[in-house]
């Protein structure tokens, strides 16, 4: 599994868990988790993957990564 494939797998895994743990805000919860625990280069890599189409990201993970993207753009 390549690093980006691994990141996609991890993001989907996190999203899948948080969908049941935080049913009211799974996308934001997934975004928060990625912000709290992922090193910036991992976040940049997953954002770049989304920019390239993000084919294998789940719906929740895709939303979370998009929110990361927006935050990064706002920051800079």
């Amino acid at each position: 599994m390549s690093t980006v494939d691994h990141l996609v797998y991890m993001a989907n895994q996190i999203a899948r868990e948080l969908a049941s743990q935080c049913p009211d805000r799974p996308v934001a919860a997934t975004r928060d988790h990625l912000r709290q625990f992922w090193d910036p280069r991992m976040r940049q890599a997953i954002v770049a993957y989304l920019d390239g189409g993000g084919e294998h990201l789940s719906e929740i993970a895709r939303g979370a990564v998009a929110m990361l993207h927006e935050t990064a753009e706002r920051a800079g």
Partner: peptide, 15 residues
């Protein structure tokens, strides 16, 4: 910013 975990360090190393 949070840093890398061990498995992520190894991924980053191979990258």
């Amino acid at each position: 910013e949070p840093g890398l975990r061990i498995p992520n360090m190894l991924d980053a190393a191979t990258d």
